[in-house]
Amino acid sequence: MPPDSPIALCERHLAIAGESASVSFGATDLLPSPCLLCRSRLGVRWPSGWLCAVCEWPYGEIPDTDLPPPRVDVVYYLRFDDRIKIGTSVNPRQRFAAIWHDEVLAFERGDRTLERHRHEQFADERFARTEWFEASIPLREHIETLAGGIDPWSRYARWVSEAVALRG
């Protein structure tokens, strides 16, 4: 029995138990190549094949490019200098090309209703009749909570790929 073994089994029986668990629970590993939807390299290997660990798209399955991309509404948070813009878009890359900004801070799924709610929530920090806000402590804390240390573009890619996967 290996000294660091989590259970009292020899190496051979540990290997058998591990293989049995991967059949029931899948084995997380690197995909042979990036997922065609979200570009993640992380996958789950099942006896029936691979799934992307991020968006659960079946590895090797080609998305139907004849279908229009799914609609994924997001509320975005952009920083320019010492100000933060709270806006909404269904195509953030295209939208950001028209907005001066230094950094994409975060995304959250939502449409104009959520955007209006965020504008009301941070009304005290808002520059009159704009979507720009002072980078106050409450607003920065809200953005940090949303971002959760994850790249906003990775999160957006996951939402889009999940929407495609749900569509089938």
Rank of each mutant, 00 (worst) to 15 (best):
P68Y: 09
C52V: 09
Q94D: 09
R93K: 11
P47G: 00
L51A: 07
F133S: 11
W46C: 03
Y76S: 09
G43R: 03
L42E: 15
W100L: 11
E120Q: 13
C38E: 08
R83H: 09
E134H: 12
G87W: 07
T28V: 13
T130I: 05
F122W: 07
V72P: 03
L114R: 15
P138L: 12
W46L: 13
F127R: 11
F25P: 00
G26P: 10
E103G: 05
R45S: 13
Y77V: 02
W57Y: 01
A53D: 14
A123F: 06
L42S: 15
D66T: 15
R45P: 06
R118K: 12
P92A: 01
W100V: 06
L36D: 11
R129H: 12
P63R: 00
L51I: 07
W132H: 09
C52T: 09
E61W: 04
L139F: 08
W50V: 03
L36R: 15
E134G: 05
P63Q: 01
W50H: 04
E115I: 10
P34M: 14
F107D: 04
Y76W: 07
V90K: 09
V44A: 10
R116E: 11
A27K: 14
G26H: 00
W50C: 03
I99S: 02
R45D: 04
A106F: 07
V74E: 03
C38S: 02
L51R: 14
P69D: 12
G110T: 03
Q121R: 15
W100A: 12
V72C: 08
P68H: 06
L36S: 15
L105D: 06
A106W: 08
R116P: 01
P92Q: 00
R109N: 04
L105A: 02
R95V: 05
L36V: 10
P32V: 01
A128E: 12
F107Q: 05
L139V: 01
W50I: 04
R95H: 03
L36F: 07
H101C: 08
T113A: 15
L30I: 10
A27F: 11
C38T: 10
K85N: 01
L30W: 15
P68Q: 08
F80A: 12
G60P: 01
F96Q: 09
L51G: 03
E56Y: 08
C35V: 13
E125D: 14
E131S: 14
I99M: 02
P63W: 00
L67I: 03
D82N: 13
S40W: 04
Y59D: 07
G43P: 01
A98T: 06
R41F: 14
V104G: 03
V44P: 06
E120V: 05
Y76L: 06
E61H: 11
D111Q: 10
Y77I: 01
H119N: 08
A123S: 12
G43E: 06
G87R: 06
G60T: 01
C38V: 12
P58D: 00
V44M: 10
L31R: 11
E61I: 12
C55A: 02
H119Y: 05
V104Y: 07
P70A: 02
